[in-house]
């Protein structure tokens, strides 16, 4: 099952292959089920390692000790010391809360992006990537009725480079959602739609173009729904699909 590409799969996932090799391996993965399955194994191990590796948290007490040690020394005066003591308590408590909240939010955001990228890879590696196979949005959208607790609009794709391949029900953080697969030229992209119940903090209203596991990714919030678009297509193509989806949701 190993072929010439096998030793490069990890480097590919690290996003460290040269541009031309990256494209060649992208193309190879679409035609080689063994490598696609291998990549999936590696992605899963990587994700598990990432989560197992973030194991230890410093205590608040220890953080404060180091913070005090590195804080710049300021000229001392008695009245300022009084004022500082009073405000410092408030500021520390507030800053502590903000830092903890932001740190957690950033971590959750990272994990969500990883999960979304994994869902995309896992689906493409599967022998039946979609449960409803159709290029017609009027077939795909009603298929989800009763399967997920919300509805959504899909864009008209005539006169665009995109085609709809089909859809399936998926889960993120135990919440059900729609997973649609689109194709542009030879690139397949996943669109995920979930209810935006703030289960994941730090995603923001619109992320703009992002990169995860060498995939391009964009997420935004619209009408209480959370959208993700992920794939190996260029950021421009991802951006075009995002614009089509946003316009369809507004209509």
């Amino acid at each position: 099952m190993a072929d010439a590409w096998t030793p490069k799969l990890d480097t590919y996932l690290d996003g460290e292959l040269a541009g031309s090799e990256m494209q060649a391996l992208d193309a190879h993965l679409r035609g080689c089920p063994a490598c696609a399955a291998d990549i999936l194994n590696r992605v899963q191990l990587r994700r598990a390692t990432q989560s197992a590796g973030r194991r230890y948290q410093p205590s608040g007490d220890f953080r404060q000790r180091v913070q005090q040690a590195v804080a710049p020394r300021r000229a001392w005066s008695p009245w300022r010391a009084w004022l500082s003591a009073a405000t410092a308590v408030c500021v520390l408590v507030f800053a502590g809360l903000v830092v903890t909240y932001m740190g957690r939010a950033a971590l959750e955001r990272k994990q969500t992006f990883s999960e979304v990228a994994d869902l995309h890879v896992a689906t493409l590696a599967s022998s039946t990537p979609v449960d409803v196979v159709s290029t017609d949005r009027h077939t795909v959208k009603p298929w989800f009725a009763g399967k997920i607790p919300f509805t959504f609009n899909l864009p008209e794709l005539q006169n665009s480079d995109f085609t709809l391949v089909g859809g399936r029900v998926t889960y993120l953080g135990q919440a059900p959602g729609a997973h649609l697969i689109y194709q542009v030229r030879k690139h397949q992209m996943s669109v995920f739609i979930f209810q935006d119940r703030d289960i994941v903090r730090g995603l923001g209203s619109d992320s703009g173009p992002e990169k995860k596991l060498s995939f391009n990714l964009q997420t935004w919030r619209q009408d209480d729904l959370r959208y993700f678009v992920v794939g190996d297509a260029s950021p421009e193509d991802i951006g075009k699909l995002v614009d089509l989806l946003k316009a369809a949701a507004r209509s």
Partner: peptide
Amino acid sequence: LPAATPSPEAILIERSQQQLLQNAM
């Protein structure tokens, strides 16, 4: 680069096996 080892199928690690992975690390 050493020849890559094929991934053992058992590597499909569930979150419940995180302890095992932490021990391995």
